[in-house]
Design a protein around this nucleic acid. Structure first.
Length: 119
DNA sequence: TAGGTGACGGACC
DNA sequence: CGGTCCGCCACCT
């Protein structure tokens, strides 16, 4: 639990929810976004715990190599991920590879907030 | 408690 | 581009 009372899983879900339809994010990117730099692996575990189907766009999270993380342990959710991404217009090859550079999402932070002190 | 296993990532060859 | 190694850390024996 963090100061806002959110568990690690909840923070991951909140971050993933920010990824727009038709765009992609990496596990490491989500980790960094929630202040857990270097904890990409745990992000994977958090998504593994996600009950499906889910309103959280978990399918938009792929690995930094630009491929769907395929694994028997996912019991088919990896293949489901390929279908969901294709449905959003992202070309995914049969082996899980995809053009990450073209669809990678970049979180937008306000350059100046309303309370900043200006000179 | 120690050791193996990942929905990872980056360095190297 | 592909294959290996290693650091990482939560889970599960």
């Amino acid at each position: 639990m963090d100061r806002a009372g959110l568990s690690f899983d909840q923070r991951v879900q909140a971050a993933v929810a920010l990824v727009p339809r038709g765009r992609l994010a990496t596990y490491g990117q989500i980790a960094e976004l929630i202040g857990a730099y270097g904890c990409a692996r745990q992000v994977g575990w958090a998504l593994r715990r996600l009950p499906l189907p889910s309103a959280v766009p978990w399918h938009r999270v792929v690995n930094a190599q630009g491929r769907i993380s395929m694994s028997p342990g996912r019991e088919g959710s990896d293949w489901m991920q390929i279908e969901l991404l294709r449905a959003e217009g992202i070309p995914v090859q049969a082996d899980g590879r995809l053009p990450l550079r073209r669809y990678l999402w970049s979180p937008e932070f306000p350059l100046v907030d309303a309370c900043s002190i200006s000179a």
